[in-house]
Design a protein around this nucleic acid. Sequence first.
RNA 1: GGGGGCGUAGCUCAGCUUGGUUAGAGCACUUGACUGUCACUCAAGAGGCCGCGGGUUCGAGCCCCGUCGCUCCCGCCA
Length: 597
Amino acid sequence: MTEGNRFATALRSHQCGALRAEQAGTVVRLGGWVHRSRNLGGLVFIDLRDRAGMVQVSFNPDWSSAAAIADAAAVGVESVVLVEGVVELRPAEMRNAHLDTGDVEVRATSIRVVGPAVTPAIPVARGKNDALPAEDLRLRHRYLDLRRPELQANLILRHRLLQVTRQFLSERGYLELETPILTKPTPEGARDYLVPSRVHPGEFYALPQSPQIYKQLFMCCGFDRYFQIARCFRDEDLRQDRQPEFTQIDIEASFIERDDIMALSESMIAAIWLEAGHVVATPFERMSYADAMERYGCDRPDLRYGLEIHDFTAAFAPLEFGVTSTAIAAGGRVRGIRVSGGAAWSRKQVDELEALAKKAGAGGLLRVKKVDGKLDGPVAKFLTPDAETALALADGDLALFVAAGDRVSNPALDRVRQECARRLGIVDENARRFLWVTDFPMFDQDPATGALSAVHHPFTAANPDDMAAFPDAPEKWRALAYDCVLNGLELGGGSIRTSDPRVQSRMFALLGIGDEAEQERRFGFLLEGLRAGAPPHGGIAFGVDRIAMLLSRGASLRDVIAFPKTTAARALFENAPSSVPPEDLRELHLRSTAEGE
RNA sequence: GGGGGCGUAGCUCAGCUUGGUUAGAGCACUUGACUGUCACUCAAGAGGCCGCGGGUUCGAGCCCCGUCGCUCCCGCCA
């Protein structure tokens, strides 16, 4: 069976968009949507669209009945029609190079309007320079927006990526196992979406933030290798790249170590990217978290450009300069970047960079530039010849510094570095710099209270060397965790898990859940599984939505999700959430405290 | 939770700075003309709670206050 008529059914023989010169002379029956029509008076053209593309259908007294021409002239755009006709090669001067089907047209003998359409609320067919309708209208009329070839291409690509993923993992012995959607609330982490229980008054399920514990239990059960295209839910405020429900490629495996998961992930990413037409080189680069923070101020650095951060503390330490000496005396450092060509920027342009640094928390942004072999700028006069040598500025360079503790300077310099790269136009949009960031700290310590929280999640295993070397200083432990980063974006992350229930119990205690009864109440079902005999295991999860977005070339997250929510977590198409009748609430043992009810 | 931007015809936008005749344009829509178009062309027409509520004013699309919606950012997102 050929690609062309794989879609043949009782009502149609071919897809509109699949017709080519090879089908010339063939009688075809098509079904599709009227994308546009042109009525020249006695001669009518309809661009007929389906998911495969578009083809021109022509109505002409030479081959069409008068009734067919009249029906074709009258049909409105976006109506669904069935057309019968003959595929004919177009004369050379009438070919349309902009259309995949442009070498042919379908000379219609009949047309039947099976799904007449009201005038669409938002246009589906657009001119080259027409702006898209407002986002809320596109979401409200999603049934129309999703007809656009661009969005159809995005969702079709997404389908192919998921199919490749399934095939890839299945071929390697990974089992696609499902986990519950109605699950147990987890008090830490993101807010849960709660579902009230009708049968158990006052009790609630939660929608899963991820299938984390279930997949670890699969390992305890001996399922060895698991994956799932898993829907996850987090009730937090949204962003451009964040939806309340999202999809992960969730993976877990037993009897493995970090390198096993990383190698598997690299091959899988390469297979996914290949499906989208890109060859990805493996293995990926690797960098420790400490290195990433030191050189880029960020745990997911964009390696498409340099502008690395350097430590200039030694150059500034001896100087009689209040800003830096105060910071250094307080235990801080002077770190910054050299921007080749930045000396040409105006005072105002550098002030804008400083504003970014301040917004990121820095007190200010120090600046020195070298013009005609001489240093210039407010800091220049404090610099000794030794300090000048240490800065190592070339002519035309601008150096930007933050004098502070790393906690302050890292986010500020990260922001400044990104903006400098953007301004200099040195970001290669075609480059793909995959990177593993490894050896994350195990815990984040609240500077005020000293309280520890998990950087990855509470089930991550700590590096055993660190636990042995600093048994009483868990804030120094590194985690056996890893993030997969592409061009400054986190694609996914995972870790080796704690498989010893006593160690897991201690981790909970370090995180402030010391009470055993409390541990059992919250995580008993995991601890029981671990106690029953747990293999060493670990895994990773990748964000499907973001991957689909990247591979659809710059579309927004909402453009790779069929029915996304707005930034207020509202579904405009189906109008959710919505209020429910009081008797429904009563049955669920709920009473609303919202005003106006 | 906080801050910025936007909201005018079915759609995309002007008009707002400096309040003052009947609120405009392009596309879409309706009607008519047109036999090779492919964003067809041409002619005519219809289409407005200027997001909503309040205030200032002789007079508000325009100024002020509030509110709702969308969006971007901060907080938040183990």
